[in-house]
């Protein structure tokens, strides 16, 4: 998808671009509501998928879908930018050496765009972890099924005597986030060194 937006020109590209980025600008609750309308039990897509036994509404699968939709633009954007930054002269050189377009992508473009891919995964992951609005609107807040960490913390703060539990979850999320941040930093630095041929 990022490659499509970075390197191709096609009819409707700006529309696709807008749709991909929409969840970034729309209020999360609006995104969640739209998801409910399309993927809900009576939604156009939801009804069709239900025939195959795939149900999103008020299930953990729906929570995953909501997080995915919300995280997608944050994932795509840095990857796209770093693909755009890859020197196309290197891709030409690869083609003269006999590499078909998809092999150029996997052997040259993607490895050279790696820092952006890592950054995108980091941002997407962070968004998915913190996702609150769209999830709660789409699949509600069912413990053990659709509850994200943010939703759980919010519930606990609304409950008397919930402070200790909330605190535990806060610490857990700080740890997860720190580990992810450090890991992505290490990966990006390693990838950056390789880029300069060192």
């Amino acid at each position: 998808m990022a490659w499509l937006l970075a390197r191709r020109d096609f009819w409707g590209k700006s529309v696709l671009d807008a749709v991909v980025h929409l969840p970034l600008v729309l209020p999360p609750v609006v995104t969640g509501y739209l998801l409910l309308l399309t993927f809900g039990r009576r939604g156009a897509v939801g009804q069709w998928l239900a025939e195959f036994g795939i149900v999103f509404a008020f299930r953990w699968t729906g929570a995953a879908l909501a997080c995915g939709v919300m995280a997608f633009p944050l994932l795509v954007r840095p990857i796209r930018l770093s693909i755009e930054a890859v020197d196309q002269r290197l891709e030409q050189a690869a083609a003269t050496l006999g590499a078909a377009p998809w092999r150029v992508f996997f052997s040259i473009t993607l490895p050279l765009a790696l820092p952006g891919v890592v950054a995108g995964m980091m941002l997407g992951f962070a968004k998915a972890i913190g996702e609150f609005g769209a999830t709660i609107t789409f699949v509600s807040n069912i413990p053990g099924e659709t509850q994200t960490i943010s939703a759980a913390i919010y519930t606990l703060t609304q409950t008397p005597d919930g402070d200790a539990g909330a605190m535990r979850l806060v610490i857990v999320s700080i740890i997860i986030s720190t580990v992810a941040l450090v890991a992505s930093e290490v990966l990006a630095r390693r990838a950056g060194r390789r880029l300069h041929g060192l």
């Binding site: 002269r89 050189a93 003269t96 050496l97 040259i108 490895p111 390789r194 300069h196 041929g197």
Partner: peptide
Amino acid sequence: VPTYLRRIGYVFQDARLFPH
């Protein structure tokens, strides 16, 4: 014929070695 099927080698002025 697309470039990758031509079997024609190319040495560019700026070498274009793959840095990774």
